[in-house]
Design a binder for these strands. Structure first.
Lengths: 320, 320
DNA sequence: TCGCCCCTTTGACTTTTGTCAGCGTTCGTG
DNA sequence: CACGAACGCTGACAAAAGTCAAAGGGGCGA
């Protein structure tokens, strides 16, 4: 756990420069090295998370739409990514906002659950480096056998790496061939341990999957397009950590779910802070189902998605 | 709670510059203002805590002495401020280390107790600005009637200001003229409320006072030098939030303590994280008493103080 | 021991950032 | 309605930081 001697000087340079506000040439003189070396050390210190630069995300959470959503739908916090006007590209901006918002919720010693998907992967990719030694990042669902670009273990590992935290991967396939095999595997001590870790999480970062034929779950080969269609007919509206949920955001007792090795929907629901990030408008129904199911306490969405959520909520609440 | 329009642009500039890594001229073009303005906004954003730059304090906690103290005396974390060599002035460095260490323990929504004294005041003075909206800083002890430079309410207020947190002051004198009056005041709802807030703290930042004749408590007029001498004869070894403690770090049933309006020693003891910062070697006995009394979980001291603590601990533990 | 390779460090150059006096605009006041 | 003060913004200059090719140095295998 001791700092490697090579890193000692990074810490010293960073401390003198950022905390004491010395100039690079003063730091250089102090440490008896050239100023160019100081500049290099400082860059490395930033890259390694020895120095953390965080910007307030108030710009996105302090917005009438965000406040209205919080009040009406009972979220703890909402971040709205603006669209149109001379705003930056919302598709590129959302993972950045999500990463910054996520970091503002995390502290040393936390245990954090992470699911998988394109969205989560994008967030991992822009996650600033931080110094969260003592934190743990836990993978929420089993892995996919087939090589696929957004693997669950990659998301976990990358986020853990960026935070300087410990990453705990889930050493099981996401989908087994039979429910019996899945049951047997769930009883394995290794899997039980993983589930216990998940129940210790104080924060989860995830997205919700849609059930359209070109959805994530189909593309990665976990289910066929036909199977998904059948599930939809049975009431499936979204995908959470590999499992399908119905319109009320409840776990469905279906063939697919019985074969899934993943954090249970109810265990996810009981994690205190549940940050959901949804990029695509196509996932509206899935998101709405997840919200109804109590799976979202912190939300990052586009302005248009936020508006649509509000409209739908009003429509549902109105007649009642 | 909405961002004032004037601050909106600070947030935007900070976001584009620090999170997106744009150059100042790019930010200027984007916001359609001059680059000089961008530079000015960025400075203000840093000063206001919209942007937070934090450096790891591992340099001070990752040290054999620190680790040994943690292991032997059971602290959760120890930071050692180096002395001698080509180190910076330890007297000036300690509050800086303490402030950085403190910030690494704090998160949005925390309730933080703060006591008073020269040390705490120095820490407040170098505390970096941060964006902890939703956090609360609670004053642990009553105020002093006489004007004095390190007033408890000043410490609370200044730390709250720097963190962008809410500051809750303790509207009572520290010492009453009679125990009866103190009792009556303690039963007041306002004071009860304050005590309730203190019991909600998840973190406390304080120092321990010595009982030498020129101690803090005497200088500010709370007790006379003679009274303190008498207390010492009765076993007093240190001062915590205005109250004297004995060599075992326990509250003493003495005239002074019965007249004090302050967080009880036992309520402080049950705060999960208790960060103590001690600058002067003269406070060794007081610190040792506080440690024995379970009042310290996180410690910031000089290398020589750390050595002396270890020696004393070994001496006490050895014969046993 | 020599030579090779790789990583660190440096000096010199370029780019970026900080600063400040002066200008313009706005808002409050007589 | 005119005046003055105050504040914010800008352009130009000075200072600081970033970058890169080349030199230095340490470890390891031959």
């Amino acid at each position: 756990m001791a700092i490697r001697p090579a890193e000692q000087i990074l810490h010293k340079a960073a401390w003198l420069y950022y905390t004491h506000g010395m100039r690079q040439d003063e730091v250089a003189k102090h440490l008896d090295i050239s100023r160019a070396s100081v500049a290099m050390y400082l860059r490395r210190a930033r890259e390694m998370g020895i120095v953390t630069i965080a910007t307030s995300t108030e710009l996105f959470s302090d917005d009438v739409l965000a406040r209205t959503l919080e009040d009406r739908l009972g979220f703890d916090a909402v971040w709205i990514v603006p669209e149109g006007g001379h705003a930056l590209d919302p598709a590129a901006e959302m993972p950045v906002v999500a990463a910054a918002a996520f970091q503002s919720l995390v502290k040393k010693g936390d245990t954090i659950g992470v699911a998988w998907g394109r969205t989560v992967y994008h967030i991992a990719d822009v996650m600033p480096f931080a110094d969260l030694q003592g934190a743990t990042v836990v993978q929420l669902c089993g892995n996919l056998g087939a090589p696929y670009s957004y693997r669950p273990d990659q998301c976990t590992t990358e986020i853990a790496r960026r935070l300087n935290a410990e990453g705990i991967n889930f050493y099981a396939p996401l989908v087994m061939s039979t429910p019996e095999l899945a049951d047997a595997l769930r009883r394995e001590p290794v899997i039980q341990e993983q589930m216990a870790r998940i129940s210790e999480c104080s924060l989860v970062l995830y997205s919700v999957g849609g059930i359209e034929p070109d959805s994530h779950l189909v593309k990665c080969g976990a289910v066929t397009a036909d199977e998904l269609k059948a599930l939809e007919a049975q009431g499936a509206r979204g995908v959470i950590a590999g499992q399908v949920i119905d319109g009320d955001g409840q776990w469905m007792d279906c063939a697919h779910n019985r074969r899934c090795i993943s954090a249970s929907i109810s265990s996810i629901r009981s994690i205190p802070r549940r940050m959901m990030v949804v990029e695509q408008m196509e996932k509206f129904d899935a998101l709405y189902a997840a919200i109804r199911g109590g799976l979202v306490s912190h939300l990052v969405v586009t302005a248009s998605m936020a508006k649509r959520l509000l409209e739908r909520f009003d429509a549902d609440a109105g007649p009642a």
